[in-house]
Design a binder for these strands. Structure first.
Length: 104
DNA sequence: AACCTGACTTCGG
DNA sequence: TCCGAAGCCAGGT
């Protein structure tokens, strides 16, 4: 596996419970400013997906991109179970976006 | 190598 | 706020 992919995996693993990150955010943090689709690809194809908090990655609008019937409801349920609140199908990124600044 | 395909994002109307 | 179009980029055919 290539280095950036590994970085992306590590970043996703670092998203804390009750917080979310966008595909684009993870991509930027991994050094791929326009690599949002690559983040999505890795989530979709990686056999390691089962070991990742994949449900904490959402789109730039604060919504769930995974189609209903293909994990969409599950993703929302998992997030809600962590205390993330949805309003009109979206989460408030101001409130729930992961900000890995303090305490590492 | 050309072409297609996304768990995306941004911009303009 | 809600689409549609265009941009993006790596992996699959």
């Amino acid at each position: 596996m290539e280095g950036t992919s590994r970085r992306i995996i590590e970043l996703i693993r670092a998203i804390p419970r009750g917080r979310v990150a966008t595909y684009g955010q993870i991509a930027r943090m991994a050094g791929l400013p326009r690599g949002a689709r690559q983040v999505a690809r890795i989530l979709h194809s990686s056999s390691r997906t089962r070991r990742l908090p994949w449900h904490r990655v959402i789109n730039a609008s604060g919504g769930i991109s995974l189609a209903p019937g293909y994990g969409g409801e599950l993703q929302r349920a998992l997030l809600e179970k962590e205390g993330v609140v949805f309003l009109r199908g979206r989460v408030n990124l101001r409130r729930y976006a992961w900000r890995p600044t303090l305490t590492g």
